[in-house]
């Protein structure tokens, strides 16, 4: 347990000083500023425009950061051989993977809190009230990033950082099109194509479970069990991905 916390803290400190993290933060803040400017230019529905764009900014930044942190935390560490002096200490590779994941997750959580607070602050500048579902939406956006972080961590234990990033981004796109994939599987005339669509549908994470952005921005109702189910799905998916990452790394020869 102490090994996990030591690795998490070192990972956290390392990322806090990473310039790319601040690049992503700057992008998100500029996007939020753009959302505010755009909402000021519209005559009606200012809040909806701001929240729509603002939540998209958090979603995109969370996706970029989740993948980046997952890839850098393990794949880069294997490529740069910084992993050698850590793994050669009396600790297991499972402890290493969990420690790396938790350190990166802490960074992800802080960035989400910062961006969410900024969006809330900017929305209040418009002198309008906040929709009641906003905290739920923030939570689900964080869950989505946390899943992407776990997926990127899994890919990064057995491939290089470029491929791990590419695979993770592909999973993100597929995960966001999960319902469409299911519909394609149902409608496809070919058994082979239907089978492929079904496999991809089941193998990829259903990230649409975490998308209530439009409903919240436009003040529409959404089923509240989406939150509890989303949380359980998120925790299970992370546990599965990290277990798989740990199992794979435990059998891998470090180059």
């Amino acid at each position: 347990m102490r090994s996990i916390s030591s690795i998490s803290i070192a990972t956290f400190k390392g990322f806090v000083r990473d310039r790319i993290l601040y690049g992503v933060l700057l992008f998100a803040v500029l996007f939020l500023g753009f959302s505010y400017t755009l909402s000021m230019l519209t005559i009606i529905e200012e809040r909806k425009i701001l929240l729509d764009f603002g939540l998209s900014a958090i979603s995109i930044s969370g996706m970029i950061l989740g993948i980046f942190l997952g890839v850098v935390s393990i794949a880069k560490e294997i490529e740069n051989r910084t992993i050698y002096t850590i793994i050669s200490k009396p600790l297991s590779r499972t402890e290493y993977v969990i420690g790396k994941y938790l350190g990166a997750l802490a960074i992800l959580a802080i960035v989400h809190v910062l961006l969410s607070t900024t969006l809330v602050g900017v929305t209040k500048l418009l002198d309008e009230g906040l929709p009641s579902g906003l905290p739920d939406c923030f939570l689900l956006l964080f869950c989505e990033s946390a899943i992407l972080l776990a997926i990127a961590s899994f890919f990064s234990v057995f491939t290089n950082s470029f491929l791990a990033g590419t695979f993770s981004f592909t999973i993100f796109l597929v995960g966001r099109s999960n319902t469409a994939l299911n519909a394609l599987a149902q409608k496809s005339q070919s058994h082979v194509l239907s089978g492929i669509f079904k496999f991809v549908y089941w193998a990829s994470p259903n990230l649409e479970r975490f998308n209530i952005r439009d409903l919240v921005a436009y003040g529409k109702p959404y089923p509240h069990e989406m939150i509890s189910r989303g949380l359980i799905y998120c925790i299970l998916y992370i546990c599965f991905s990290i277990s798989l990452a740990s199992w794979t790394l435990s059998r891998k020869d470090l180059p």
Binding site: A10, K13, R17, R81, T82, T85
Partner: peptide
Amino acid sequence: YLPERPYFHENL
């Protein structure tokens, strides 16, 4: 243990 051509976490 000291690895060959050691690289360490540059942000620490």
